[in-house]
């Protein structure tokens, strides 16, 4: 699979089965998901099958990419394409998160004040919810989910902030190692980053357990519970994905796949990790702190 075999100097991959497999894996997963949510038991098996297929696809696709990369198929221009692609992918993710931050903003600053009697639709309060006061955290005039306590900012969340910030530093350190062809620093930096990431996820899971059992803070806890779990949940999911990607990169680093001038995969994952980091800062400020 050498570049020469292909047309011109821009690498055009051979026909590949992975996209079709990707299509089927997504279809099966989501089809199963829709069934499972409506209590059809077949659904959950399909979800598992679809996800397995998806991971197989990721494995296969990236295996091809790595093979092509190692046989020098990719020139500068291809590398730039990958970089730009990753950049715009992250941009789309930013907007995905923005929709949840936007929801939080809207509920806190527009909807709840109305329900509480302020602002343009304040008459709502007078007609429908006499006596309801708007204080955040809120589970609404219907007091959905019952009595609860909010999640404080200065316990685990603060620790998690430190963890993620540190992990941002360690991955940069690993990147320096890579740039200086210092494999040891690269590997150590990655291991530290992964460890921090995993630690973060564990703490987050612990925090959820705490919230469910002791604070009675659940998904059903009105607007506060909804936004809290949605934002932190999607973020946690991204951290998990990031950690998996870091592990793949670690494996490749150990096999010395990267050189100081050819390591797009590493950079892509690093960008992703920084993105996850920044989102967390937003979460910390808007979900936990303010």
């Amino acid at each position: 699979m050498s570049a020469k075999e292909h047309s011109g100097d821009y690498f055009i991959p051979d026909p590949s089965p992975w996209p079709i497999i990707g299509m089927f894996s997504l279809l099966i997963t989501l089809f199963g998901g829709a069934l499972a949510m409506n209590g059809v038991s077949l659904g959950s098996y399909l979800v598992v099958a679809g996800l397995l297929m998806f991971f197989y696809l990721l494995y296969g696709w990236f295996r091809d990419v790595i093979k092509e990369n190692l046989s020098d198929c990719y020139n500068r221009q291809v590398d730039t394409s990958f970089r730009m692609g990753m950049f715009w992918f992250i941009a789309s993710e930013v907007f995905f998160f923005l929709s949840f931050f936007g929801a939080l903003y809207y509920i806190r600053n527009i909807a709840l004040p109305w329900l509480g009697g302020d602002g343009y639709l304040g008459v709502t309060n007078e007609i429908l919810y006499h006596g309801f006061e708007n204080v955040w955290p809120s589970h609404g005039p219907g007091e959905l989910g019952g009595e609860f306590q909010p999640m404080g900012a200065w316990g685990i969340p603060a620790i998690n902030t430190l963890i993620l910030l540190t992990s941002g530093a360690t991955i940069t350190w690993a990147h320096w190692g890579l740039k200086m062809d210092n494999q040891k620093q690269l590997v150590n930096g990655l291991i530290a980053t992964i460890a921090l990431g995993v630690f973060f996820v564990i703490l987050q899971a612990y925090e959820y357990g705490h919230a469910y059992q002791e604070l009675n803070l659940t998904l059903e806890t009105g607007a506060y519970g909804s936004t809290f779990y949605m934002l932190t949940g999607f973020h946690g999911f991204h951290v998990t994905m990031g950690a998996v990607m870091l592990m793949a990169i670690l494996g490749r680093s150990m096999k010395s796949h990267f050189s100081s001038h050819n390591h797009f995969a590493f950079e892509a994952v690093a960008w992703y990790w920084h993105f996850v980091d920044v989102v967390w800062l937003g979460l910390f400020v808007f979900v936990y702190w303010l």
Partner: peptide, 10 residues
């Protein structure tokens, strides 16, 4: 005007 459950518009 829309009638919105849980809100009152005028």
């Amino acid at each position: 005007k829309d009638a919105i459950p849980g809100y009152v518009t005028e």
